[in-house]
Design a protein around this nucleic acid. Sequence first.
DNA 1: ACGGTAGGGATTGTTGAACAATCCTGCAAG
DNA 2: CTTGCAGGATTGTTCAACAATCCCTACCGT
Lengths: 232, 232
Amino acid sequence: MDPAADVTDPLDRLRSARPQVATTSTADRVADVLRGEIAEGWLRSGTRLREQPLCTALAVSRNTVREALSQLVGERVLVREPHRGVCVASPDAETVRDVYRARRVLEPAVLRQVRPGPDVAGDLRAAVTEGHRAAAAGDGDGVGSANQHFHRAVVALAGSPRLDHQMALLLAEMRLVFHRVGRPQEFHLPYLADNEAVCAQLEGGDPVAAAELLDDYLGRAAGALLSAFGEQ
Amino acid sequence: MDPAADVTDPLDRLRSARPQVATTSTADRVADVLRGEIAEGWLRSGTRLREQPLCTALAVSRNTVREALSQLVGERVLVREPHRGVCVASPDAETVRDVYRARRVLEPAVLRQVRPGPDVAGDLRAAVTEGHRAAAAGDGDGVGSANQHFHRAVVALAGSPRLDHQMALLLAEMRLVFHRVGRPQEFHLPYLADNEAVCAQLEGGDPVAAAELLDDYLGRAAGALLSAFGEQ
DNA sequence: ACGGTAGGGATTGTTGAACAATCCTGCAAG
DNA sequence: CTTGCAGGATTGTTCAACAATCCCTACCGT
């Protein structure tokens, strides 16, 4: 079989390897480090990030640190108050409401416009089994990340890099919410069955039913999270 | 009548005035200027933006310019190639495809979940009449911006600041596309009737029909733009 | 004539230091 | 208890410098 049989341009394969070639700037690497520390919960919500300590800790210039911080502020992971510095975002009830408002628009809409076909739900199924495996192993954190993979896979069905990026931002905010609310395990566990159901409906060739299931499921998840915040 | 009768905190009124208090940083103002110049077409696609000339032109430091440029790169208005500088983004056919992919997910989904009620379509109607007025006055540019107002108003129906922001980014990319394709007048004019139809369906209490109209309409618009790009 | 190769200039990436503006803290005075 | 005021700390912004990289051009060998 000719590897280039069904590809218009044989260089297309190389385009996906570009991130490895394009040398990332120092500020980007600093942003990556901070993003990771926040995503994994080492930097809690509200933590103030002073510039000078970051410079010495990461051995980069203050200007580079500021560039990285501005980038993360743009992603809503950090919050900047003028002349007072930046701190890790502290999502409040209104943030949760809006993130779920956006997700309930985005995710069901992607499902609804999926054209049924063989293996359309492949990535969803992989995320579901990943979640089951983590649950069986008692790995609460693994259940959480499997859940994120599931929702990322849902949006990825649209095949739109822009929507993928938007979803990544929303999920990053969700991670902050989960860290803020405490133990994320019991929040993700009950939704394994919902993921399973959505996946099954999609595999069964009924995207609209899958979308309606997901919409209802997201509504319940938002309610549960909001009650955990003490508000409604 | 006590002005503070039904408000828990009388300071709530002041919260909406915060943007006037929060002094914007110099980099933000520089970014605003560049964004405006690009949106109005004074800086065409592909134009290289060197840092030093921008410094002298705007009388700010190179560092501040770099911060503004990074911000606009994050908004996909500029494109940075490492060690080669930034230039105004040149949307290609794949960009148009993806932006419309995202819009066809976003906009109909917002319409579909609108709960009919009195004056839900108020902002849409305002944008439609704005478009008619501009068309009658022969103001092609006005038709274009009225069109943008219409689609912004559609997404605003969701009431989600995050979706509003995402839509603003997509529309900024669309402006680049229109400037790139040449005269935008004849591209917007035929869609006035479509806007009118969508608005009418929504006013008639049938959001789903409005969503389906809009989806079809966006599909046709994408096709027209892509053929203008010489590709399909 | 053609492709490869070194040099020089221009531009970006990054650093370090400096200064003004602003904010926070603690303390004294009313 | 609140107000006003130093003093220190932090941020916002500028400037100057250097290394790294890129672009362009002239040169050279085949």
